[in-house]
Design a protein around this nucleic acid. Structure first.
Length: 336
DNA sequence: AAAACGGGGTT
DNA sequence: AACCCAGTTTT
């Protein structure tokens, strides 16, 4: 049916001509005739695929509250679904509304967060709950702009909550969607490190029109593209033979060229970093018992960390509100 | 634009 | 050992 050769000019087709794989300007003769598919068939293919292949996640259920969606989005920032699932269940069981979340102690919040990582997210989620109580009467706001004003809610999360909890046709772009766009529409193996204005324009341009279906297809498009990136169009070893748009994909049509040096992600170091030291200290504090400052600094199970680094990290935890200090005792905030 | 910020499963 | 993950905030 639809093949690269049959792609007719379309007024709504994304103008991707400038995004060819070769550097614009000097040297490279523009032999890279990048082809990009009409978005419309991609919309329907992915919507159909999603209806059959979507995972049954609790925050996608029809009866999930907007707060449940928001909690899931914060937890899912830089954290895989499988690790979020048990923490989300426990959080929602204990704190099913913004109001009860706002009233919890910070120590409880950080303990239930457990080892999800980036514990400042947990604190910001509680601060956001407090803001929701104060500014929105305890109800999660339903517009991108109001959501964006909440702590810990950035461009992605604001659009995601507005779309998934309130059916707003916002342009949702996460790491999965960026990769799907890069491959299907731009013909690249990977989207590159930073989210550029050009990528933002592409995401907008390939959104389904909302005029006729009240944005329903737009919301499905967002979640379906995300799910495709999570299950099929993965970063490494994508399952192209199972892909519902394999015959529409610009990357496939270009012969699946490998990622360029520019597109390689800069892998974060871990061993020896302040993040590792902070994480080890938080693990001690999560046991619940206040500890002597000197004991916390000296018994840390990280021989490679010198005292200067340990002191720096403890001070940063105190400054971030992830730990509290009383006299010589250190504990989770709210314990002391 | 780049760095800081956790932690564990996968390759 | 490197890579990856439903990003946000600060510099």
């Amino acid at each position: 049916m639809t093949t690269p050769d049959s792609a007719a000019p379309d007024s709504r087709a994304p103008d991707l001509g400038a995004q060819g794989p070769s550097a614009p300007g000097l040297g490279a003769p523009r032999a890279d005739f990048t082809w990009s598919p009409d978005p419309e068939p991609v919309h329907f293919r992915l919507a159909q695929w999603y209806s059959e292949a979507a995972r049954d996640l609790p925050w996608r259920r029809e009866d999930c509250s907007a707060w449940g969606v928001m909690v899931s989005e914060i937890m899912l920032q830089q954290t895989p679904v499988v690790r979020v699932l048990p923490r989300w269940e426990e959080w929602m069981r204990r704190w099913p509304t913004p109001a009860v979340t706002a009233a919890a102690s910070a120590a409880e919040i950080l303990t239930v967060w457990d080892r999800l990582g980036y514990p400042r997210r947990a604190l910001r989620l509680q601060t956001a709950a407090q803001a929701i109580v104060e500014r929105h009467g305890g109800e999660v706001p339903g517009t991108r702009q109001e959501l964006l004003a909440l702590p810990g809610v950035g461009e992605y999360t604001a659009a995601a909550v507005a779309c998934f909890a309130f059916d707003q046709p916002e342009v949702v772009v996460d790491t999965n969607i960026r990769r799907v766009h890069a491959r299907v529409f731009s013909g690249h193996a990977l989207p590159g490190k930073t989210y550029t204005a050009q990528q933002r324009k592409l995401a907008h341009d390939v959104m389904p029109q909302t005029a006729h279906d009240d944005g329903e297809l737009a919301c499905t498009w967002n979640i379906a593209a995300m799910e495709l990136g999570a299950l099929i169009c993965t970063a490494r070893a994508p399952k192209c033979v199972e892909c519902p748009v394999q015959d529409l994909c610009a990357w496939r049509a270009a012969g699946s060229p490998p990622a360029t040096e520019e597109q390689q992600t800069r892998g974060q170091a871990w061993a020896g970093t302040d993040r590792q030291v902070r994480g080890a200290m938080m693990a001690v504090l999560r046991t619940g018992e206040p500890v002597q400052r000197s004991v916390l600094l000296e018994t840390l199970p990280l021989p490679a960390a010198d005292m200067e680094q340990r002191v720096r990290c403890l001070d940063s935890l105190l400054r971030d509100g992830l730990a509290a200090e009383d006299k010589e005792l250190v504990a989770l905030p709210g314990v002391i």
